[in-house]
Amino acid sequence: VRLVQFQKNTDEPMGITLKMNELNHCIVARIMHGGMIHRQGTLHVGDEIREINGISVANQTVEQLQKMLREMRGSITFKIVP
């Protein structure tokens, strides 16, 4: 398990697509080339996201998580399992 932190201070999309796997874990499905996450190089396709800013992603839908990420500003921390 590791923590990945980055800054999001604009309306620029993060450039990641999330999916739920068969165990209902949140997985990074795709990283858009040239997007914020791609430029930082901190997340990778297949990484499992456990928490966003200390909030568990368990029992949340992809749509709920994407909305939460769109609305966040400032420092964002993901707890991930590579």
Rank of each mutant, 00 (worst) to 15 (best):
C26V: 14
T77R: 07
G46E: 04
T17S: 09
V45N: 04
V45H: 14
N24R: 09
K79S: 14
G35T: 12
R50K: 14
E63T: 07
G46K: 01
I16T: 02
E71M: 09
H44W: 04
M32H: 13
R73Y: 05
S56A: 14
H38P: 07
C26A: 08
T17G: 11
N24V: 01
V57I: 14
V57S: 05
G15W: 03
Q66N: 12
R2Y: 13
N9L: 14
S56E: 12
M14L: 13
E71G: 13
M32Q: 13
R30F: 08
R70H: 14
M72R: 06
K79V: 04
V62S: 13
N24F: 04
G41I: 02
R50S: 08
Q60S: 10
R73C: 12
I76Q: 01
M20W: 10
L3Y: 12
Q60A: 10
G41H: 08
K67R: 11
Q5R: 15
E12N: 04
M72A: 14
V4E: 05
P82Y: 02
N59W: 05
G46C: 01
I80M: 05
Q40A: 12
S75E: 11
E71C: 11
M20T: 07
N59Q: 07
G35Y: 06
K79P: 00
S56Y: 06
I31P: 01
V28T: 02
G41T: 11
L43E: 01
G46I: 00
E63W: 06
G34D: 11
M20A: 06
I16N: 02
F78D: 00
R30T: 09
T10F: 14
I80G: 03
V81Q: 13
C26N: 02
H38K: 06
N21L: 04
I31D: 02
R2D: 05
I27A: 05
T42F: 12
K19L: 11
E48T: 06
V1G: 10
R50Q: 12
G15Y: 01
V62C: 10
V1M: 15
P82M: 04
T77K: 10
R30C: 09
G34V: 03
M72L: 14
A58H: 08
M36Q: 12
K67C: 14
T42S: 13
I49S: 00
G15K: 02
Q5K: 15
H44N: 11
Q64P: 03
V45Q: 06
F6A: 09
T10E: 08
Q60R: 13
T10P: 10
N21Q: 04
Q40D: 09
V28P: 00
E48S: 08
T42N: 10
R73M: 08
H38C: 06
G15V: 01
Q40N: 13
N24D: 11
I49D: 04
N24A: 06
G54H: 08
L43G: 00
H38G: 07
E48R: 10
Q64T: 11
